[in-house]
Simulated assay, not measured.
Amino acid sequence: MSATLFLAQLLNGLQYGVLLFLLAAGLTLVFGIMSFVNLAHGSLYMIGAYIGALAYGASGSFLVALGAAMAAALAIGLLLEKTIVARLYRRDHLDHVLATFGLVMFFNELVRVVWGPQPLFVQVPEVLEGTVDLFGFTYPAYRFAIIGVGLVVAVGSWLLIHKTRVGMLIRAGAQNPQLVGALGVNIGLLNAMLFGVGAMLAGVAGAMAGPVLSVQSGMGEPVLITTLVVIVIGGIGSVSGAFYAALIVGVVDTLGRVFLPLLLRQIAERSVADAAGPALASMSVYLLMAAVLALRPQGLFPAHRG
């Protein structure tokens, strides 16, 4: 095991963790703060990826593609909140799950009808096609850019929640929406804004993932499951907890997929090791979640209430 391989995979894990955080940050706002279970969050990620891919192909500018993905996800998120989600806030979580699961199936079929079943492949932006040299170690510039975007979103989310009047209202509304509403705050508008911001962050994640992954129908469901694991590990309702947990999950999953097969080759045949290693790596994330739930049910980095 070389130091270069370990460092490369560690950075890959951080990059994956940052993508998870872009999804987890928006879902934390909706699920942890608004107490709304939105299974369609992965579909907004998928829509962001498709719109970003089409806008990039039409304009040749990745910034335009990123802006288009954000705008489309925001618009669809606000439309869903106005027409469907707002009617479910006071309903049971089971109603949330059933309604948003229906939206998942709707958006998956809509994508197949509009763009077909074949995946789309997005080129890395020309300005980020090269590599970055750090003390003799090279790493793809685009993956560094993903890490940078995630850090900017993390800082922006923390400032929004903890250093602005809107963030104060968000935290107060999560604790006692009736009291905040009685003070003259438009809770409906606040909830719509939160849902829209969460949708927009999902769109950003989808657009950023396009050049790394294939863009296809159903791409939102697997990553949504991992995102829910991130939220549980970090602490429901904690944006900073989602950030730390996303990095932990990203690193654990990536290093496990690379190094577990290498370790298993010492005691088993290569074919067996190569098949079992990634499966065990996937299991390790859920085992980590189970350990956290057993030892610290509120999560590793819970939100401080009050």
Rank of each mutant, 00 (worst) to 15 (best):
L134T: 13
V127K: 14
M34P: 01
F6G: 04
L169M: 13
H162M: 08
E81Q: 14
L11C: 11
N176E: 13
S2L: 06
L228N: 00
L63P: 02
M46D: 03
L264G: 02
S238D: 05
G52A: 09
V153G: 08
F144R: 00
V292N: 13
M193S: 08
Q266G: 12
A69T: 08
G173V: 05
F195R: 08
M105L: 15
T226I: 11
I187T: 04
G57C: 03
L66F: 14
T164C: 09
V212F: 13
G102K: 02
A40W: 04
G306T: 08
E126V: 13
F144S: 08
P125E: 11
G188R: 02
Y16N: 14
M1S: 10
F21D: 08
G203I: 07
G156V: 03
S217T: 09
V285P: 10
A273M: 02
G67W: 10
P119R: 06
A49L: 10
I147Q: 06
G17F: 12
F31K: 03
P140R: 12
I76Y: 06
L134S: 13
L213W: 13
A303V: 14
A73M: 05
S271E: 14
G173N: 08
L23V: 07
V223K: 12
V114S: 10
T131V: 14
Q216T: 11
M193Q: 02
